[in-house]
Structure formats: structure tokens, C-alpha cells
Amino acid sequence: MKVLVLTGPESSGKSWLSAQIQARFGGIVVGEYVRHFIEREQRDTCYADIPVIARGQLAWEDAARAQNPALLILDTHLLSNILWSRCLFGDCPTWLEEELLARHYDLHLLLDPRGVSWVADGQRCQPQLKERVAFHRACQQWLDDNNQPVCALSGDWPQRRLAALSRVQMLLSADDACAAGDKR
């Protein structure tokens, strides 16, 4: 199983690209639990919600991992929970980072907010590009600091789609090449 994470600021194409990748390569997509939580609760989140949201995200991820698909596509993971908690509330439960680092992810596609327009959807709260760029930098910093495999994606929508599909093809082909090498 290859585990792919789409990460970055809001309105940078994570959900759209997750669907594009699944349409091309199959696999299972795990959505963003916080969206489900907000729709269910019909209110803004507070700091006390962070552990509940994180556990929900992990439960969705674990359920998908248990199915052992060839490709698991995560529309987000705990990094977003960590960064949003810090951004909105100035703090984050320490166990989130520990839990995130205990898991294996084969590749993070880090989406740049520049080159595409912000789209309001009733839940997004960073309409200013400078806010989204700061979130992007925080993602990049965390991924770099923790030696996570990452590929940065930028450009307009067609460029992002092409780059994402190409990178996922390489990820899956590397696995095929290793398997072919074992047969020789």
C-alpha cells in the first residue's frame, strides 16, 4: 500500500486533486474530518474540539488503511489539524504530532496557494493570500524538519493536475519496478 497525502492551505486543490488521482489510479480517498464535524455540529470549532476532530481523522484513516488498498489518498492528515489548532487557538495537544510522526506516509504533495483563486465555501477562513502563503510555509517547514517525503505542486489547475498525476505515477511505478526486480 502506498499512502499519499495532499497537504497545504485551504483552497489550493487538495480535494479536487484527490478525486482526480483516484479517478486515474483508483484507491481509497479519505476526506477531511473537520468538514464533517462542522457540518454535523453546525458551529465553529473551539480548542476543546481539536482532540475530537483529530481522533475522527485518525479513525477515518485507520479504517481506510485496514482495507489495504494499493493506493490510499489522504485529502489531509494531522498536520492540518496541528497547524490550524496553532493558528486559531495558539496551542495544540502534543499527542497530535507524536501520533502523526508514528505513521508512515510515502509522499506528501504540498500545494502552493499561489496561482489559483481562493474560493469561499462557508468553512474557509483565509481569503488573504498572505495568510495562505504563511500556512503553506508552515507546512513546508514541518515536512522538512521531520524529513517527510514531499513534492511541491504549484501553477494553475491544469498544471497541478498534470504534476500530481505524473508524481503519483512515479510513486506507483517505483513500487512496480521493485516488484519486477524481486522476480529476477
Rank of each mutant, 00 (worst) to 15 (best):
Q126L: 11
R114K: 10
C87V: 12
C125T: 15
L100V: 02
Y47P: 07
V52I: 13
T45M: 13
V116P: 00
E99N: 11
T94P: 14
Q126R: 12
N81L: 02
L83E: 06
A120Y: 11
A54C: 08
A70L: 14
Y33R: 07
L71I: 08
R86I: 04
L78M: 01
C92F: 08
E32F: 00
R86C: 09
L58M: 15
A66Y: 03
W118Q: 01
N81T: 12
F135W: 02
L58W: 10
Q42G: 13
C46V: 15
Q57V: 06
R132C: 04
E41M: 10
Y33W: 08
V30L: 05
F89K: 07
I82C: 09
T45G: 11
Q126T: 13
L78K: 00
R65S: 07
E99S: 15
W84T: 08
C92S: 12
W84D: 09
H104F: 01
H108S: 11
L78Y: 03
L74G: 04
W84K: 03
A64N: 03
Q67T: 09
E131F: 03
L101M: 12
L58V: 13
E98H: 11
P113M: 00
Q42I: 10
V29S: 11
D62F: 08
Y33M: 07
I73Q: 04
D121F: 01
R65N: 05
N68W: 07
Q128S: 10
